[in-house]
Amino acid sequence: MTENTDFTKVKKLIEVENVSKSFGKNKVLQDISLTLSEGETLTVLGKSGVGKSVLLKVIVGLMPMDSGIVKYEGRSIAETTEKELNDIRKNIGFLFQGGALFDSMTVGENLNMVLHKHTDFPLEEREALIIRALELVGLSDKIDEMPSALSGGQKKRAGLARSIVLKPKLILYDEPTTGLDPITASSIAEMILSLQTELKVAAIVVTHDLPTAFTVSDRTVVLESGKKIYDGPVEGLSNTHHDHLDEFLNAARLDRSRREEIIKNAHLIH
């Protein structure tokens, strides 16, 4: 978490070994291996549809893999009983793309549901924890709101509050800034970094948003066509000469130099 932490010497929380996953003939993940240490923030970058979200769902056991092993604190997820898997999941927070709030409940009830199921805390203590979690994501005034009354960014924040209310060891973020304007996206990225620093949890952030990756990463993995093509510090991305990486970085650059060329080509089509 700190600038100089050497995560290779820290205990491994997640180990993904040679994981493959296909949907019919579509090979979404091919022989993916990666590790995540305690307190480390790993971003998984890649174009839409390369299997980033599938990787997260495989890690948390929501989706079965075709081959490979996923270990949480050295225990293979696939070999756990339902109860053991649920015990593991209590230590994992998951922020879904749209927040995935239970839409028949208020924001506060969404958080309370998780606390009520997994703790014996009295109501007052649960309320205090809910308010604290909502304060951390800047939504303490929305406790009684229904999810339908929240904006896209607020839904993600509320979803994040629900993910952290049980004080997990690991948070998985599935496209936390997708569909948000640059300012809101930037504030979400900053919030993720603040939470990681304050709660000292490990995180895997799946995104195709480079600014988010640059803000939150300790380490970055890049996926292309289901394969891992880069694993290292985010700063090293621009020094790695790989066609796909160059294309990815160039596409994210604020550059109007190709504008005239595109307009000219568009006229030629007609």
Binding site: K57, V60, L62, N86, D87, R89, K90, I92, F94, F96, Q97, G98, A100, L101, F102, D103, M113, V114, K117, H118, G159, R162
Partner: peptide, 17 residues
């Protein structure tokens, strides 16, 4: 609709059965 908006997945991940 809960499946489409990943609410069921969210319950499963939160060990809510």
């Amino acid at each position: 609709s809960m499946r489409a908006t990943e609410q069921i997945d969210a319950m499963e991940v939160s060990a809510l059965n």
